[in-house]
Amino acid sequence: MDKKPTSYRHTIWPFALIGAALVVALVARSQLVPASFGDAGHFRADAIEEARRIAPRHLGQSDCEECHDDVAHLHDKDAHAGVACETCHGPGADHVAAGGDGGIQRPAGQQPCLVCHELMLARPGDFAQIVPAEHYRLVGVGDERTECIACHDPHEPLFMDHDLRTARLHPLIHRCRDCHAGRTDETMARPAGHPAIFQCDYCHGEIARGFADRPHHRMRCATCHLFFRESESAGRILRDTDPRFCLLCHRGAEFRSSDAPPSIDWPDHRADMAEHATDLTKRCIDCHQDRIHPLRTDAAAPGDTPRGGKES
C-alpha cells in the first residue's frame, strides 16, 4: 500500500503567525515599560520623586513660631510643652496659605480637652485625667458647662513657670492607677493589708503628716507637685510657685459654686496689701504656707519613715 507522506506545509502559517504575534508583543512590551522602571530596583524610580513631591499639611512648631512667637514661648514652659500646635489646632498649611486669615481650627468647648484629659480606661496613671463632674466639684465650679479655658489657658494650662526639662529628677512615684488601670474610684486611702508601694510619705513623712491636718488635705501631693513620668524608674517633679497656679482654684468667678475653695479677688487682693502691691516676686505661699504643709525639714530625708508602710 502506498502511503502518502506526512505533510507539514500547512502548519507553517499558524506557527509563523503566533511567532510574529510574540515578536510584536515583545516589541510592544519594551515600549510600554515606564521610563524609570528598574533604575533603582524592580519599580518605577520616578515614583520616589512623586512621593516626595506631595505638599505637607502639618507644618511644625518652627513655622508657627514665625508669627506666634509669644504663644509658642508660653507653651514651652508649661505642661503642654511637647504638644505640637497642630495637635490641637489641626494642620496649618491652609492657615499659612491664607496669610494667617482663618484656615485653622480653634477648638471650643470641653471636648477638645477631654479627648486627652478625660479619665479613661487604659490611660496611663501618670497622665493628668479628670472626671469632669468630680473635677468641677473639687475646684468649686457650679456650672457644668463651664469651659476648661475659663481657668486653664491651653497654652499655659498650669502656670508652671518651669521648663519641664529642668525640673528635678525624682524616683518614680506610683499612683493607684498605675496598677489598678480599670479602677475609676481612686481615693487617697490605702486599703488595709495592701502591699507597700513607693509613696510620698516614705521620704517626706513629716511633711505628709503635717499636710493631713491642714485644709489642702483632700488633694494629692502630685496635684501641686506635678509629676512627670519619664522612664520605667524615674520622673521629674515640679514645685509650682506661680501665684496663678493657686488662683486656678482660688480666683473668684461667677461660675464658682457656694462650696468652692475660698475665693479671692485678683488682682485686688494684691493691691489690698500695700506693702506687697509692687513686689511681684511675692508668692502666695510666702503668706499662706501654713495652709498647706510644714516647710521642708531636715528630718525629711530618705529613711526617715520605715519603708514597710506599717503605718496604715
Binding site: 502518502k4 506526512t6 505533510s7 507539514y8 500547512h10 502548519t11 502559517w13 499558524p14 503567525l17
Partner: peptide, 18 residues
C-alpha cells in the same frame, strides 16, 4: 484556516501528530 483549504491524508496525519 488562514485561507488554506487543502487537505489530504498527509496533512491529516500531520494535524494528528501535532
Amino acid at each position: 484556516l488562514l485561507g488554506n483549504l487543502h487537505e489530504d491524508e498527509g496533512t491529516r496525519r500531520a494535524d494528528h501528530k501535532i
